[in-house]
Design a protein around this nucleic acid. Structure first.
Lengths: 138, 138
DNA sequence: TCTAGTATCTCTAGTGACTAGAGGTTCAAG
DNA sequence: CTTGAACCTCTAGTCACTAGAGATACTAGA
């Protein structure tokens, strides 16, 4: 059994975040000492690691909730879990696509001005003001 | 002179968002009719287009504030503007890098399970529970 | 056993960039 | 002059935390 600080150190999840996850129902309510402090065991550590890993991969709290629900019912079909992962993957791909367009546009803008002139002639500012200067949608 | 609804239509920025930008100081306080409704002119339209374009490119409200400040002083050096653009570009590149790692990991996970088994054997859930199963950092 | 210092507790409020809704007023067309 | 859409302000909610206040608990050393 270890304290919330110890759990925090081991999982690299900040203490207030752990409490927040408990409040959101991702973590079961922890056991308490006589002085009302939380105490965790291996199961708690594993669950928090799971949550942290999923968050790192960009899953929402809601999605993680569903994943945990599935984890707690090992006999149920895991279709929902793969669905969530696949949809998360689609999401990530969409974001990458969008960011690549931004990258192109920002690169073009930055190259257009060396920063040594005055605002009036700045290509960065001109590009922002006039969308026509952009090469493509973004 | 046109109404906030008209401005919204022309810029594709929602009405409450326009009011929000005004509150945040991005847009100057609009003139009002005798009945207290906002009225905009070409300058207002252009400024909002600028803001919208910058937001589309992922600039923060704070960054846009600085850019507008520079725009309002055409005689000043535009170094700060290019700095902002370059840092935004670095930010976007960083995000792309990170998302690509996630994409790889999520692809691997999704491929590992067809969704037809039970949760207990689900590779998606197993991967989330055990970081060791991942190929690389993310 | 006492004490000092760190860790923990709960609660409230703030972040960014909006979005939603209530309840009331103004505008423009017919 | 009426009707209905558009507008007004204000408050609160979103997501996933983060920060801070003020109080209590734990733990290591004297």
């Amino acid at each position: 059994m270890f304290s919330i600080g110890e759990l925090s150190k081991r999982t690299k999840v900040k203490v207030p975040t752990i409490r927040y996850y408990e409040e959101m129902g991702l973590l079961a309510e922890a056991e308490r000492t006589s002085g009302n402090q939380r105490r965790y065991d291996k199961a708690g550590l594993e669950r928090l690691s799971f949550i942290r890993h999923a968050r790192d991969l960009g899953f929402s709290i809601e999605a993680i909730s569903s994943l945990i629900e599935l984890q707690d019912h090992p006999d149920q079909s895991c279709e929902a879990a793969t669905d969530i992962a696949v949809s998360q993957l689609a999401d990530v791909r969409e974001k990458i696509k969008r960011l690549k367009l931004l990258e192109k546009e920002l690169t073009r803008m930055s190259k257009g001005c060396d920063g040594h002139g005055v605002s009036e002639d700045c290509y960065v500012l001109a590009s922002l003001a006039d969308h026509e200067l952009c090469e493509r949608d973004h």
